[in-house]
Nucleic acid binder design. Sequence first.
DNA 1: CGCAAGCTTGAATCATGTCAAAATGGGTGG
DNA 2: CCACCCATTTTGACATGATTCAAGCTTGCG
Lengths: 253, 253
Amino acid sequence: MAISNSNNRFSSKLTSQCQNCSLSALCLPIALADEDVNRLDQIIERKRPLKKGELLFHQGEEFDSVFAVRTGTLKTFNITNSGEEQITGFYCPSELVGLSGIDENHYPVSAKALETTTVCEIPFSHLEQLSSQIPSLKHQLFRLMSRKICDDQQMMVLLGKKNADEKVASFLLNLSHRFKKRGYSATAFRLSMSRGEIGNYLGLAVETVSRVMTRFQKNGLIDVDGKEISIIDMAEMEKLVGASSECANIEHV
Amino acid sequence: MAISNSNNRFSSKLTSQCQNCSLSALCLPIALADEDVNRLDQIIERKRPLKKGELLFHQGEEFDSVFAVRTGTLKTFNITNSGEEQITGFYCPSELVGLSGIDENHYPVSAKALETTTVCEIPFSHLEQLSSQIPSLKHQLFRLMSRKICDDQQMMVLLGKKNADEKVASFLLNLSHRFKKRGYSATAFRLSMSRGEIGNYLGLAVETVSRVMTRFQKNGLIDVDGKEISIIDMAEMEKLVGASSECANIEHV
DNA sequence: CGCAAGCTTGAATCATGTCAAAATGGGTGG
DNA sequence: CCACCCATTTTGACATGATTCAAGCTTGCG
């Protein structure tokens, strides 16, 4: 939903074009009737691009929209009482961010651009109304939220049970799957986040992330060149992760 | 919703009585019109009690219902590829379990009774239909799922960033809040799960959980007598946890 | 070109896991 | 009601993976 390739990025609602968007099948993966897609289009707003480091919304701010990432990458995080940042997720194109704000009507996290990033804004009250009229849309929303719950629980398993090697391998394969899903290479991609952010997210020290990656490279599992990653031995990587049955086709939404 | 105090536990739909249930305000905390509550009642089924160790549903099974815990406690877990159990949540009365099954139409986890437990079964397809007719019910469902996402992310922070002391303290205070919410003592309660299950859930060894609790007791933070817990120094416990701003009124749903 | 931020590497420390064994407790059958 | 047994919990000693601290290196940006 909501993701459009329209050249006119700053356009008003009138130019929304979910139909022409290569990502629309992902951000709300349903076969909506043309008419319904149009209705969706009407409520979407494309926003001006965020520059690296800019906030899309911040912790505590009133919730009113969810956002579909069109290009670029976001991270969500919250600031703990001790003042440190805790990253809770990374969001790639076609993924929805902001769903955790529905409950309390405030975003419980901040969302920041890791690079130049464009998003489609979807006012949630409109989306909710529309979902009453389009049952498949409502079902899709439930599914998206359910998947998020599922993914987060996989993340809990990772954080609670896995060692540093398994964490880093899981992280890289998770990204790989998400790139593949959008039609990009599953074996060569660019990390938009720093080592520090990876460590923060995985519950590891920066140094540990760096060491693990270096070792992976020495052992011929991956090739690392700064932020460019190539997965050389996919089978071995998957063995490390231990293809965790359910919720396997992980994608953060 | 769905939780009824009806004495006739094995009753058919006809005897459902969400209206009389002391938990109904919690399991779907909305002010539904009487008429609407009745419609909800119609789709709820009370199930026979589960004995300790019995499964409510198991990993991979087809999803068709969510369940509200009426009495007792459940745990959800999945079996990792290496064959070990990973607990992903504990569910107390008034809490909903099964939401993660919506996405793939299969439960990604198993749910097992930790003690004798009764639940209300809510067929999801009916609930979804009904939510089309009752907007506030639909909104409530979105909120519940959003809260679950929020809670799980807090859990991710706990697993990724906290040390053993903070994990155990967070766990105990989380339970405390949940008991309090249902009108029970926030300072004295009984753990329905074993030390092993706590450790599994928190990403700690059994021995560590035991040691931390013993130390907490020595330091006058809590009183431990087997499964009976009293929180003596609530302020100090909260300091340990570091009252984490948003999503603070944690309750697993 | 130069500086700051990010990344890598090494060495030392520490928290938590592992292993082993004793203590406790709950449940069952005599 | 007691005695036994098995599971759970506790405690101690030790091993180890990951963090921390410190220093050097690389990279990208002004």
